[in-house]
């Protein structure tokens, strides 16, 4: 797998990553950017609902949930172990 295959949607529970690039075309993705999911921000996959969708991420101490279809628009670089 190429490194650009890592997105928020591929993170495992407890895994941390830094956002590297964002596909900004979807207005909903833009909304997520307003909420702080921007390039350079570090996020942790905290939980998921039954079936793995939607997913919850921790972002600077606050919880934010998004659907997998939007999580895929955020390319990330994993941080710490497991890279």
């Amino acid at each position: 797998m190429e490194t650009d295959a890592y997105t928020l949607a591929t993170l495992r529970r407890g895994e941390k990553a830094v956002i590297e690039a964002i596909d900004t075309r979807d207005p909903q993705v833009q909304r997520l950017m307003v909420l702080g999911l921007v390039e350079g921000a570090e996020v942790e996959h905290a939980s998921a609902a039954i079936g793995g969708d939607p997913m919850e991420f921790r972002l600077f101490g606050c919880g934010i949930s998004l659907r997998q279809e939007h999580a895929r628009m955020f390319t990330v670089a994993p941080v710490g172990a497991g890279v």
Partner: peptide, 9 residues
């Protein structure tokens, strides 16, 4: 429908 929900502690 948009779905971006803040999950407060």
């Amino acid at each position: 429908p948009p779905f971006a929900l803040m999950l407060p502690e």
